[in-house]
């Protein structure tokens, strides 16, 4: 039975029932507090421009103004902002997964001389927090060494930095190492090249972990603010995280709330629908 520190019979006792009721109430109150900002944004977005400033804890609007949401959608050009974010994040995740899978396959199966040193090089980037080099990263992207071009105001200026994830390489490498050697060997005996083994054997066997890592990276990069703020200055191309807050002050609070709530819905839906994957992804780093 799925007991915890309390046994089922203890929970059924009088004290157990009281304890259970108190805990459920506490958890529910906290849950309400945690989702309050979402509820508040939703209902404030439905209020009129004067109603929102009337005093009192009137969470529910008297006369819901649904057109606020339409105004926010049009004025903030939310469709375009979602699209920009989508392009930035999808490109980053695809690039990250591609280079990470290739590198992890090499390190786990082809085992080149010096591979350990390369892996240590990858892992070193986990020791240095990203903020320690966002200034030189900006300078580097503004004037690439050797290539002599600038990636400022180009999505490559975000795709490249977000492609770098030592964590993804590390997890994939460990996963690839657990693929039974016999499967790989039999492919080799059948005459498959390294690339064919990688594409037809290793990748299909690792679908689940690749999906989990992609979702994790996707939601992580979607939330990014500082680097897109620095790299993309063209308002037509900025992601939603940068543009929305920049525009917000030009509008009334009720329109701001409607826009903010709309912007929060897709990530929330993703979290609810893909919760199992996200949970698995978060605990990968900690399972031993």
């Amino acid at each position: 039975m799925n007991r915890g520190f309390l046994s089922n019979s203890e929970l059924k006792s009088f004290q157990g029932r009281v304890y259970y009721g108190v805990v459920v109430t506490m958890l529910l109150v906290l849950a309400l507090a945690v989702i309050f900002p979402f509820l508040y944004a939703f209902t404030s977005g439905l209020k009129g421009s004067t109603e929102i400033f009337t005093s009192g804890l009137n969470i529910v609007p008297e006369n819901p103004q649904w057109e606020n949401y339409k105004t926010a959608w049009v004025e903030f050009r939310l469709a375009k902002l979602f699209k920009n974010s989508m392009v930035i994040v999808t490109g980053s995740v695809v690039l990250q997964m591609t280079i990470s899978c290739l590198a992890a396959y090499s390190l786990s199966n082809l085992k080149p001389i010096g591979g350990r040193i390369v892996m240590i090089g990858f892992l070193l980037t986990l020791m240095v927090p990203a903020i320690a080099y966002f200034v030189p990263l900006f300078v580097t992207l503004g004037n690439l060494p050797v290539l002599e071009t600038s990636l400022l105001d180009s999505y490559w200026g975000l795709w490249l930095p977000y492609a770098v994830s030592a964590f993804t390489i590390f997890v994939l490498k460990n996963f690839f190492e657990r693929i039974p050697g016999e499967i790989i060997d039999s492919a080799k005996i059948d005459g498959a090249s390294s690339l064919q083994t990688f594409i037809y054997i290793v990748l299909p066997l690792s679908r689940s972990i690749i999906v989990i890592l992609s979702i994790l990276s996707f939601t992580g990069i979607w939330r990014e603010y500082l680097l897109p703020l620095l790299i993309i200055s063209n308002p037509e191309e900025q992601p939603i995280t940068v543009r929305l807050i920049y525009l917000a002050d030009n509008y009334g609070v009720n329109i701001q709330m409607a826009a903010a709530f709309t912007a929060m819905v897709p990530p929330l839906l993703v979290a609810i629908i893909l919760q199992r994957f996200m949970r698995d992804g978060l605990t990968i780093g900690f399972s031993k």
């Binding site: 940068v242 929305l244 709330m257 903010a260 990530p267 996200m278």
Partner: peptide
């Protein structure tokens, strides 16, 4: 877990 997926720069507006 819900707040952890929302971009901070948007939650800040609320």
């Amino acid at each position: 877990f819900l707040p952890t997926v929302v971009p901070i720069s948007i939650a800040v507006i609320v």
